[in-house]
Design a protein around this nucleic acid. Sequence first.
DNA 1: TTGTGTTTTACGACCTC
DNA 2: GAGGTCGTAAAACACAA
Length: 258
Amino acid sequence: MDTGRHLIFDSSSSSTRARLVVLGGGNPVFRGLRPVVVGEERSTAKRPFFTSPDEIYEDEYYEEQLPEKKRRLTPEQVHLLERSFEEENKLEPERKSELARNLGLQPRQVAVWFQNRRARWKNKQLEQDFDRLKSSYDSLLVDHDTLLKDNEHLQLEVKSLIEKLQAQEQGASGITGLKLDGHVASSTGSGGSAVVELEGANQLVESSRDSYLPDGYPCERLVHGEMHSEEDDLSDEGCSYYPNGMFMEHQDQEWLWN
DNA sequence: TTGTGTTTTACGACCTC
DNA sequence: GAGGTCGTAAAACACAA
């Protein structure tokens, strides 16, 4: 990661700021030495490459190019830049020049500051989007788990009802009008619904449904208001306990995070 | 004081208009 | 060609040990 060392110089005698970039790390004297001048919007006045390691220690050069640390902008400068960024996060040339003049900075510094500020803003946006998606996902997950539990509960109830009916069928052969011809329909592979196919027994099932079905629950497929004929399709095909579009398998949700 | 993680400033490469 | 994004280096800074 650390590809080299930078020695930064500043020309105090002119507005041109010069940076000496020492590439390659290790002893700077023996590496590729390339002074890079950044001045008025990347001044073209570049100092040539050093031709020998000794040149880096030339007194004249240091007299001319005093060492400079990378300076942070003052809080006042940052404040003004922030205010300007809030107004418009893109920088037209006139605005850039004006800001630079007002802040005592190079136009290039203002441009760079805006570039970096946009990058930070974008990162922040991404973080916020992630948080929103994550909480939405977590909430869906809770709903999903709740529905799975409901479904499990329903299946148990159905099973229990069937057993009751079977017992009644055996013990009440003299009662007319109650003919059991039921079974638990196959569930969907995704923890889908359980449906009882009954003939003449809907009232028994109806009597217990309020105990576990939420208000407005789409359970018409489970218990119809009237007797079914033999031709009625009472399988659970297409009858999920999830409203349309709500159900998602856990593995199907992974795309959200990939 | 020192080691380490984070933020800020600055640049080069590449892309778009 | 100007100005944008993206990735990264390195200085500056914050902070725990």
